[in-house]
Every structure is written in C-alpha cells, then in structure tokens.
Design a protein around this nucleic acid. Structure first.
Length: 172
DNA sequence: TAAGTGCGTCGTT
DNA sequence: AACGACGCACTTA
C-alpha cells in the first residue's frame, strides 16, 4: 500500500487575506488543510505522479471556497474530499460533521448520538481533533454541552473566528 | 448560581 | 496501560 496511488500526496499553498493555508491532495481529492501558522507541515509524497490537471482544478476550487468561507459566505464548488485516511470510527464522525448545517452547532454528545455511539462522547472529541480538513469538514461547529467552546486543533482563536463568521453568537 | 472535583466511557496510541 | 477538543453528578462557597 505504500506506493499505491492513493498514498501519494501533493502539497500546495492557498493564499488568503489571513495568511497562507496549505492544501493536500490525493488522487481522490482534497485530503488535508492546514491553517497559516504552519510550522507543522506534512510531507509531500511523490506528488508529481498525481494527475496534474485535475489537481489544479481542485486546487482552484478549494482556494475559492476557502476564501468564501473566510469571508463569511457559504463555500461553494468544493472539490471532492478524500476522508479515506482515518479509522472507521473517525470517518463516521467526519461524515456526520458534514451534516451540521452552516450557522448551527452541535455538542460532542449530539455527534456521538448521531453515529449511534452515544457513550463515545470523549472519543468523538478525539476524532474531531484528528479531522484532516478543518473548515470544510466543520469540526468548529461542535461545542461542549456546557456551552463551553471545546477545543480546536488549529487554535481556539480560529474556532471563534469561524463561528463568528457564520453568524453564531458564542457563549461568552 | 458559579466554580471545582471525581469518575464513567470509549477509541487511539 | 494511559490519555483526551466530554458529560454528569455532586460538592462547596
């Protein structure tokens, strides 16, 4: 599986008014997104072998969608998202996150319930933290049940900013 | 009320 | 075996 086409990753920068994001593409689509501060960048594995024209299309679309999202508008024209990277449980969580409507928030417990694993609340938090495509897979819309913010792998300031741009008023 | 403590629970490493 | 992006029951002030 090491040299399998699906294992190849291409890394590309996305310029934005708020800094340079980093996108990662596999043959299946966008498979990763990182916030600007970026001291922690992943490797780009034999990316040259991936279909260049298609990735350029995806990249253009992702950049556009990201800038829309940052501007507080619904991102449209998203490229396919490759979420094949995680465990079964994580994929279930990530798929569920995609169902959270813009401008709405769920609790970690609600997500756990939605995947039919109501007691796996804490594990859901772990899966959110492992979300490879923040913003587009809206893990920022998951808050703690006590009206707390919860955490965010990209930094809580980003979580607050993203929520605010969706018109969500935060619990203090 | 508000703030703090303890513990159950479960997927991941 | 240990650790969390949790939630809840249960103290204290």
């Amino acid at each position: 599986m090491k040299n399998d086409i699906a294992a190849r990753i291409r890394r590309m920068p996305i310029p934005s008014p708020e800094g340079e994001f980093t996108a990662y593409y596999s043959a299946r689509g966008l498979c990763g997104l990182e916030f600007p501060s970026g001291t922690k960048q992943r490797e780009s594995k034999t990316g040259a072998a991936l279909p260049a024209a298609q990735i350029r299309r995806w990249h253009a679309a992702a950049g556009k969608a990201l800038r829309l999202a940052l501007a507080g508008r619904p991102p449209k024209g998203l490229p396919p998202l490759d979420l094949s990277g995680g465990t079964e449980f994580q994929r279930r969580v990530w798929q569920t996150l995609r169902k959270i409507a813009r401008g709405r928030t769920w609790s970690y417990a609600q997500v756990a319930q939605a995947i039919g694993n109501p007691k796996a609340v804490r594990a859901v938090g772990g899966a959110c933290g492992a979300n490879p495509i923040p913003v587009f897979v809206p893990c920022h819309r998951v808050l703690a049940a006590n009206s707390g913010l919860g955490g965010f792998s990209g930094g809580l300031n980003w979580k607050r900013a993203l929520l605010k741009r969706e018109g969500i008023s935060l619990p203090d």
